[in-house]
Amino acid sequence: MTDFKQAEQCAARLSALAEPNRMRIIDALRTGSRTVTELAMLLKVELINISVHLKKLRDADLVQGKKFGRFVEYSLKPEIASEDGAVYLDLGWCRVELPAVK
């Protein structure tokens, strides 16, 4: 049986992914790091909305940010991204590959 902490982390990750723009952000980060501005222009979404979505993804431990001067570059956490661009989500009892957004 899954313990409570593991189930809680799984629920947080699934909740973070339950929004189309967050899935698009994950997809955009498959190819490398991007700033909020780059993501906003690529996805045609307001900067503030991208920031809110990135906060939710950070809280779910799916993305990380690295500060460069006044900019932050976001990337997928190493444990969910593989060298071939695939993204894997560890749900505790199974590991799921997230498909590319088309």
Rank of each mutant, 00 (worst) to 15 (best):
G85F: 13
T35Y: 09
M1V: 15
A7F: 15
V101P: 03
D84T: 09
V45P: 00
R34K: 15
R34Q: 15
D27E: 08
H53M: 06
V101D: 06
G65M: 00
I25M: 06
A60P: 10
A12M: 11
C94M: 13
N49S: 11
V101F: 12
K56C: 09
K56G: 05
C10L: 13
V96Q: 07
L42I: 09
A12H: 13
S33H: 11
V72I: 14
C10Q: 12
L57K: 02
L76W: 00
G65F: 08
F68S: 08
V63A: 02
A16C: 09
M1S: 15
A100Q: 12
V101H: 07
L17R: 01
Y88P: 01
Q9E: 11
S33N: 07
D3G: 13
L42P: 07
V52N: 10
R13W: 07
Y74M: 00
A86F: 04
H53D: 09
G32N: 06
T37E: 11
Q6I: 14
R13F: 05
M1N: 14
L98Y: 06
D84Y: 11
I80V: 09
R24L: 12
P99V: 03
G65Q: 07
S75N: 04
L76M: 00
E8M: 14
E97L: 03
F4L: 15
T2I: 15
E19P: 00
I26T: 00
A100E: 10
C10N: 13
T37G: 06
L14C: 05
K55F: 13
Y88H: 07
L39H: 06
A81Q: 05
R95E: 13
V52H: 10
L91A: 04
K102E: 14
A81T: 02
A81E: 06
H53R: 04
L39F: 08
L29M: 03
P78I: 01
D84F: 08
L62Y: 01
M1A: 15
A11K: 08
L62V: 02
M23N: 04
L17I: 01
P78T: 01
V36D: 03
E8D: 14
R70Y: 11
R95T: 14
A60Q: 01
S15Q: 13
D59P: 05
Y88F: 12
M23S: 04
R24A: 07
E38A: 02
D27W: 02
D27C: 03
K56F: 09
L98C: 03
F68Y: 12
A81W: 04
L14K: 02
E46S: 06
N21Y: 13
L54D: 01
A28S: 09
M41V: 12
A11D: 13
R70E: 07
E97H: 01
R24K: 11
L91V: 04
S75Y: 02
S51K: 09
L47M: 14
M23K: 05
F4K: 13
D90P: 14
T31I: 13
R24T: 01
A7S: 10
